[in-house]
Design a protein around this nucleic acid. Structure first.
Lengths: 203, 203
DNA sequence: ATATGAAATGAACAAAGTTCATTTTTCTGG
DNA sequence: CCAGAAAAATGAACTTTGTTCATTTCATAT
């Protein structure tokens, strides 16, 4: 790689990291091109040479966030030992809640930042999410032995949506969701009750 | 009420209605003061005489949306006849999904419009939501006979969050939730399975 | 060393929310 | 009905912020 390409690559990662830090600390709404440029020591124009626009940069940060969520979920499954399937599902739910609460601004940028209606979505935005669902599918399929892959997958998405919705309304100041203090506990209750429903269906 | 107060009140409702129409048609991100002023035949300054800022106007529209959601949920319970409790819960869930899909821009303005972090929230924003939860609590309490009010209320919020999360990720282009075609059906499955879990808990 | 093309620059532009000095309208007392 | 005062409406100007692009700076190959 040539000097110039190296420099370009370093500036790209510098910008992404600076954007990530600013989003994490202040929220995506307070991410501004001029401040980013000052952070990394370049001009505003350079940002636009390296990224289509600020939304593209935000998408890159969001992809990293998605990866981090995937990592903590993966790690939580490594740590869980030989727990039964439903406990694994609870662990995944709690891990997701904990990450969202601890990194609420990054999490909000990933899920709640509004792109223009016609903004082109890179493929990797959707692909990165499949891995999240797969974590859930593994233990869930244990309780849905007679369902096809697609049904299990759809239910995994629904369970993800459930936990996501609980987090979303809990964190949203303007909406009165489940109290933050009880979020983990209530998430566990919801997952365990749902799984009991799956089991009683087979019986 | 004096002439001037009448005029003022009419202009206020005109502005709210115009904002509602524009949000409904184009989304909250494309609501602009100059266009609103042109709609109702006043100057931009007048908007700021009647509302603190555009966010305040958006909050008024959101309150109407909340009221409309409450109304359709209420109406769905009037229509449901003597169905059993779980069917009532399913009806509430489907009604919510249908409203969100049919009025996605209004729904998004209510739940996803980001206010400044320190923006003061009027009381009625949170109060209006209590009614939504109460619709769910009534049939839900049937399956949680030995739980206290608070636990039932928290579980009602969680179920609301579940359906809300499913709708949210289904409508979000950038996130791969449950396919929109299957949203109603999948919502029903999730609610029925959860309730079965509640029942098997008692047994 | 020079020419050439790529990259960086930042002033300028555009879009949109918000303000406020000025103008217009309304109200009130005589 | 009029004059003056108070209230309301006005819209030009200001502010902020994303984005562009003509110009300058730099790196590389011959």
């Amino acid at each position: 790689m040539s000097k110039v390409a190296e420099r370009k690559a370093r500036m790209r990662t510098d910008l992404i990291e600076s954007a990530e830090r600013r989003i994490s600390e202040q929220g995506v709404a307070r991410l501004h091109a001029r401040e980013l440029a000052a952070d990394v020591g370049c001009s505003v124009g350079t940002i636009y040479n390296l990224f289509e626009d600020l939304d593209a940069l935000i998408l890159h940060v969001s992809f990293r966030t998605l990866k981090r969520i995937d990592d903590v979920m993966e790690a939580s499954m490594d740590d869980v030992g030989d727990a039964d399937a439903v406990s694994r599902m609870v662990t995944l739910g709690r891990t997701y809640c904990d990450f969202a609460v601890a990194n609420s601004n990054l999490w909000a940028a990933l899920f709640e930042h509004n792109l223009p209606a016609d903004y082109p979505l890179p493929d990797w935005v959707l692909e990165g999410q499949l891995s999240l669902f797969r974590h859930i599918e593994a233990p869930l399929s244990f309780y849905m032995p007679s369902s096809d892959r697609e049904t299990v997958g759809r239910t995994a998405r629904s369970l993800f949506s459930m936990v996501h919705g609980m987090v979303s309304l809990s964190l949203e100041r303007r909406i009165s969701g489940v109290n933050l203090d009880m979020l983990d506990e209530q998430t566990e209750f919801m997952i365990r009750t749902f799984v009991r429903g799956l089991k009683s269906d087979q019986a």
